[in-house]
Design a protein around this nucleic acid. Structure first.
Lengths: 219, 219
DNA sequence: GTCTATACAAGGATAGAC
DNA sequence: GTCTATCCTTGTATAGAC
């Protein structure tokens, strides 16, 4: 792991837990065991560091989403795989940045802060959501062709709604005790599919092979 | 308007636009046309000010939500009224804090930041969401009794989902160009109701009397 | 209740030695 | 590539006059 990578790792860790503005370059330097000015050898400024973190994380997330789409044909399972992928990504981030596992990171609020930092970030983040929406619209179309998703939907709005539901639930999990994406996601999937499926669709035969989870913790 | 109120107003305006951490007491003082130390006559510290803002805004929002519930019997219209109320609240905030109307404030990210500030805030925010969930569960139960909401739902998860959908869509509107709660909300209502309604429910007869909106702007 | 003056800490950033 | 030393700005907060 290069020093540069260590800095990005430490920065992200702090950005996602205590927030961008409460993260000082001194703290990052301490975490990496270097001195503050050394950061400036690798990054032009704090803004530069924030930008790199944003791009790093979005490139990774998009890549994983693409992979999860490729392996599956069925629209229903594709949608679940997408949600699983996003949740797993958040979960991995949470495990990475927190010592205990009872807290979930909130990428969305980081994205919002990053959007304010530079137009470059703003566009990158907008592009991420746009790509996601395009994927979902195509997924909905496929489902309609196969007759398993009802025709009477506004795909543009439903696709936004699908993003809002998963993003919203992850965010809620971070601030509301009653929400817990880790235990409630299967209920969410049922509920989501229920709102999309064509009437008289046969019930789903088998569950996806979800990884098992540690119990006794919130996240 | 007392000086105290002016300070809260100015603080909120800045908290919701550029963020809590990028708001300095000097800026707030300038906006209110007083000097920085005068703020300390009214508030013990910046943390105190953040707490007061949180409570102010949540008391107001909860009050409006209660009012919107009281006037209506039908679960479907009650749900729409709730969403309308939350959207209108955000819209009013947006008009208040921004000079132009193309941007939407994001309360959720403010809540997250406020949660980190003090346990007092954390509990207040959690309580807000809990009250909302309780209202929604009761709404769902009523709808089931009346035979217009299907029985095969997990009310606990669906109620969380309903909160996530509106909160998520408002948040998305703030960072993704393709999302616009102002123009897409009626589509959202349709989509939401569609996912709840018992099969063979007669179509809704009349629209609620929604206020008209200025066109040609995002928010 | 509001001010001036000021203390004190911490932030981002640069110069220049090694 | 990393360091020490340092600059400059800004932040929160307090003392004490009016």
């Amino acid at each position: 792991m290069t020093t540069r990578d260590k800095i990005i790792f430490a920065a992200l860790r702090s950005f996602l837990t205590i927030g961008v503005d409460q993260t000082s370059l001194s703290n990052i330097a301490d975490a990496v065991n270097i001195k503050k000015p050394s950061i400036y050898y690798h990054f032009k400024s704090k803004e530069d560091l924030i930008n790199q973190c944003t791009f790093n994380i979005l490139d990774d997330l998009e890549h994983r989403i693409d992979l999860s789409f490729e392996q599956i044909d069925s629209p229903r399972e594709q949608l679940e795989a997408l949600y699983e992928c996003m949740i797993e990504f958040h979960k991995n981030l949470s495990l990475m940045v927190y010592e205990n596992h009872h807290q979930i990171v909130n990428l969305t609020s980081f994205f919002q802060r990053a959007s304010l930092e530079s137009d470059q970030n703003k566009q990158r983040i907008d592009g991420y959501y746009h790509a996601l929406q395009v994927k979902l619209i195509s997924l909905l179309s496929n489902g309609q062709k196969q007759g398993i998703i009802k025709n009477a939907i506004n795909k543009e709005i439903v696709s936004i709604d699908l993003i809002a539901r998963i993003d919203g639930m992850i965010t809620l999990s971070a601030i509301y005790e009653g929400a817990n994406i880790n235990t409630q996601r299967y209920g969410l999937y049922e509920s989501v599919w229920d709102s999309l499926k064509a009437e008289h669709t046969p019930k789903k035969k088998k569950m996806l092979d979800y990884k098992s989870f540690d119990l006794g913790r919130k996240w």
